[in-house]
Design a protein around this nucleic acid. Structure first.
Lengths: 344, 344
DNA sequence: TTTAGCACTCTATTCCCAAGAGTGCCAGAA
DNA sequence: TTCTGGCACTCTTGGGAATAGAGTGCTAAA
């Protein structure tokens, strides 16, 4: 990205913060007046004309002020990254919210999305963690009768996930013990997501006496662990969107809500957006989702025992106070990861 | 509710179906023209004037046609109840949707809310079942290390729920066995929701050697089974609301979405609305929720082993094709209950 | 390089008017 | 008694036209 002169940068920055505040296009007059620098509107106009030509701002129509473009926001956000302050007010509130005892994963997820939306006044989104990349250590099977099992999968660090599985055929106590031992021996240390493939491979080479074990094990894995790849998430605060002036237009808003309703599509947008570590920001068309052209995403990946496990963040209009919201999402993300490890 | 003459009833019914179709106030002229009966607009006007005085219809303003009132819809819906047909088209589709294998409770809930909204074009809502009224039969405890337990609770009919609980203190294998036996003996046959109170009572009279067991048991119950009373639900299709002409007004719609965002409040509205068996309809102010004055609820309670366990339904504008939607909600409710028993 | 001035453009608001839809009421017909 | 045609009245809706206001681009001078 090209560099801007300090003056252009200040003007761009002013346009952004003013527009973020008011949702109104910003004119040269306003800038000259509320801008420390002793410059006349005419000078500002020349600078703005340059900025427009370079693509950082645009005009809704000929006789309106300027509004920031994707590129303008992007430049601003990149500048921000180097500084990165944190609003102590919000940080304190977040800390308090997470201090309450949270007892289940569901509660944590719902709670966190609520916190995100209440602190930022945007839509808060939290994805359920997936465990695929964690290493397996130990499984326990409990019979529930009629061929149904409860399987409890643990990692070396003590994280546990469990599933009810219908095995189709009833299994005796003895069988159960054997399968348990078999799984614990065969799969120790393997990441959950690779169990299926591994069992598949081994089954082909297995002696006849073991084939049945491999098949039962495979069924168990398929019906339980492999389910976690599904992309569940929870979001909260959609009514906040309707308060923003850019969503006064029903048609526009409807399309946006359609995108949110299509959970599959939305999950893929969000997931794509949160590769890499740390907080990442996706502005307007950067989301790669047509309906979200006037929205931005601030997403953060969270980790479980150093392994990426899911993401969370907020979604709102492009016109966002990025300087305030980026550190907030980061802060919530850390608290969430902590709380997650405490629960699992 | 007072009786209407057959002619008034036919007119009311026509006004409702026309208004449901078009969202436009209905005038006497329209009725006279598209109404089999050879009556002049003037006659119809007189009848309408009566209906208005009786409170079944109202005028948005002096020179507009009439629209149905809560009372009008209510009369219509009550009439419907006696007939109760079912749209085979939709029934077939619902059956197909439920035929797919559904593997977890979460999946079933999300799926069902999606089906509800796609078949009815309204918002579909499904509450998670609560198990409080089911009888307890058997519990199993599995240690996860560091004082954390997985507890698996079963009913006589084989339904299982499980929870991870942090007991605060590590428990040896022997302790675990004792507590398991203790719980199974003390609580057999008790409904889940009454376990806490029962243990509390018994603890007071217990001999010193048993107090510790009661306390551990109480902690276990408090941290696990009693959580299920929380009112979780899932809904889908909120973008469909924005397509309806009555929600073109952003302010009005915002209030509605605020009500939906407040999950606690919404849960209580919905739950209050679904007392009793069978499908129940709540029109406008009957929902007892200010923000929902222009909405209706069609709710059905579902059962688990003959015990009411939760509810599901749809929410949309008052202007709803009740005749079509009531049987649909009923149908989904039945399929859901079946699927639920298959899963748990 | 900056500034002041000026003509120009486009939006948003207001007001007015006419068209249209629907009603209520009354007097007369069935 | 019940129904109908006619008529005056009311109220919303939509389409200009006029106006005010905001903001720009350009040019010439400091």
């Amino acid at each position: 990205m090209e560099e801007l002169t300090p003056r252009k940068e200040r003007i761009l920055s002013f346009i952004i913060s003013s527009y973020v505040d008011s949702a109104l296009p910003v004119g040269s007059r306003t800038i000259a007046r509320r801008f420390g620098l002793g410059l006349s509107p005419a000078t500002i106009r020349n600078e703005m004309s340059d900025l427009e030509e370079m693509g950082f701002i645009s005009q809704p129509h000929t006789s309106a002020g300027r509004i920031p473009s994707d590129k303008g926001y992007r430049y601003y956000v990149n500048q921000l990254a180097s500084r990165g302050s944190a609003p102590t007010e919000a940080i304190k509130k977040i800390g308090e919210e997470f201090r309450d005892k949270i007892r289940s994963l569901d509660e944590l997820i719902e709670r966190t999305s609520r916190i995100l939306s209440s602190v930022t006044s945007e839509i808060g989104v939290v994805f359920y963690p997936h465990f695929g990349d964690l290493a397996f250590q130990h499984v326990e099977l409990v019979s529930l009768g009629a061929g149904r099992l409860l399987s409890i999968w643990q990692t070396p660090s003590g994280i546990a996930e469990n599933f009810i599985v219908d095995m189709g055929e009833p299994l005796g106590r003895e069988d159960l013990g054997r399968i348990t031992n078999f799984l614990n021996k065969e799969l120790a240390g393997i990441p959950f997501s690779e169990m299926g493939a591994l069992l598949e491979r081994k089954r082909k080479e297995a002696s006849d006496s073991l084939v049945r074990f491999y098949e039962l094990a495979l069924r168990l894995v398929r019906e339980s662990v492999e389910r976690t790849t599904s992309e569940r998430f929870c979001f909260d605060g959609s009514s906040l969107l309707l308060e923003k002036p850019e969503f006064r237009d029903i048609e526009k808003t409807r399309h946006l809500f359609q995108a949110l309703d299509d959970r599959k599509q939305f999950a893929s947008v969000f997931r794509a957006s949160s590769g890499g570590a740390g907080v990442r920001v996706f502005i307007g068309h950067e989301t790669n989702c047509g309906e979200l052209w006037d929205c931005s995403l601030i997403a953060s990946r969270y980790f479980l025992k150093e392994v990426p496990a899911g993401s969370l963040g907020i979604i709102g209009p492009r016109r966002m106070p990025y300087d305030r919201l980026i550190p907030i999402v980061d802060c919530v993300s850390r608290h969430f990861a902590d709380a997650l490890e405490r629960i699992l």
